[in-house]
C-alpha cells in the first residue's frame, strides 16, 4: 500500500494510495509531520499532497537509497493520532455578482437556484488536502457532487485575489491575481498569503475551512480591515 517512488536524484515520493480521501490525507499529513520532526539536515522540503509526500533532499548530502531506508524505518503514525483535526478557519465569502461571475452557471449545472447553490457550498466543512498551483492556494474538498462542475474550457487570464472557485469536486481560493480556470462563485476579503508576515500563510494541509456567506457591507468592512493591517 505504501509505495516509495524515486523522483530523480534529489527527491522521493511516498505514495499512500490512489484516491482523494480524508483518512488517507490525514495519514499523509501525519507522516509528513513525523519526517519534519526528525530534523534531518539536508532535507529541505517535505511536500504533502492529496495522497503522497514528496521529500526533497540535497543530493550531495544524501544517498537516495539510504534516505529510503531511513524513511521506511520511521514509525507509521497511529490512525487515531493521524486523524487529529487541524485548525478550523471560518472564511467569509461574498457570493455571486461581480465577485462570483460563474455562480449562475454553477447553479444551472446543479439544477438549483443561486441561493440554494450558495447554501450547499457553504454548508460543507472542507478539508485542506494540500496547497499548490500558486503560493497559498488551498485545494479544498470534497464539494457536493451536485456542484462538481468542470473547469472553464478557456481559463480566465486574470482571476482577482480572494476569488473562490470550483473545479470538479474541489473548491479553492486564489490568494493572488493569476490566470485560472476554476468557476468563480464568490470572493473572500480574508488574505491567505501575506508575504511579509512572520506567518505568511493562513492555511496548512490538514486544516478545515468553513465558508460563511456575507453581504456587500461586511465584505467592504472586512476588506478595509485587512488592508489596514497590511499598512
Amino acid at each position: 500500500m505504501l509505495r516509495i517512488l524515486p523522483l530523480g536524484d534529489s527527491a522521493i515520493t511516498i505514495e499512500f494510495g490512489n484516491e482523494i480521501d480524508p483518512r488517507l490525507n490525514a495519514h499523509v499529513v501525519g507522516f509528513a509531520q513525523a519526517i519534519v520532526d526528525q530534523g534531518w539536515s539536508g532535507i529541505f522540503d517535505i511536500v504533502p499532497t492529496y495522497r503522497s509526500i514528496t521529500v526533497h533532499f540535497d543530493p550531495l548530502q544524501w544517498d537516495s537509497a539510504a534516505l529510503v531506508d531511513r524513511l521506511k524505518a520511521l514509525p507509521r503514525p497511529k490512525p487515531g493520532k493521524a486523524e487529529q483535526r487541524g485548525a478550523l478557519h471560518e472564511i467569509p465569502v461574498l457570493y455571486g455578482g461581480e465577485w462570483g461571475p460563474d455562480l449562475d452557471d454553477v447553479a444551472a449545472f446543479a439544477g438549483l437556484s443561486p441561493e440554494q447553490t450558495v447554501t450547499l457550498h457553504a454548508s460543507t466543512r472542507y478539508r485542506v488536502y494540500m496547497l499548490g498551483f500558486i503560493p497559498g492556494f488551498p485545494y479544498l474538498g470534497l464539494v457536493s457532487t451536485h456542484l462538481a462542475i468542470p473547469r472553464l474550457s478557456t481559463p480566465r487570464t486574470k482571476v482577482p485575489a480572494g476569488s473562490v472557485g470550483i473545479a470538479d469536486r474541489q473548491t479553492g481560493i486564489y490568494p493572488t491575481v493569476t490566470p485560472g480556470g476554476w468557476r468563480l462563485i464568490g470572493r473572500t476579503p480574508t488574505p491567505l498569503y501575506r508575504r511579509t508576515n512572520p506567518t505568511p500563510f493562513l492555511l496548512k494541509p490538514g486544516d478545515l475551512v468553513q465558508f460563511r456567506p456575507i453581504d456587500r457591507e461586511e465584505f467592504d468592512r472586512l476588506s478595509r480591515e485587512a488592508s489596514d493591517e497590511d499598512h
Binding site: 515520493t13 484516491e19 511536500v47 503522497s52 499548490g132
Partner: peptide, 10 residues
C-alpha cells in the same frame, strides 16, 4: 492522475 509533487528536471 491525482496531482503530486514535482521536481526540476521532471
Amino acid at each position: 492522475f491525482i496531482s503530486d509533487g514535482t521536481v526540476m528536471g521532471a
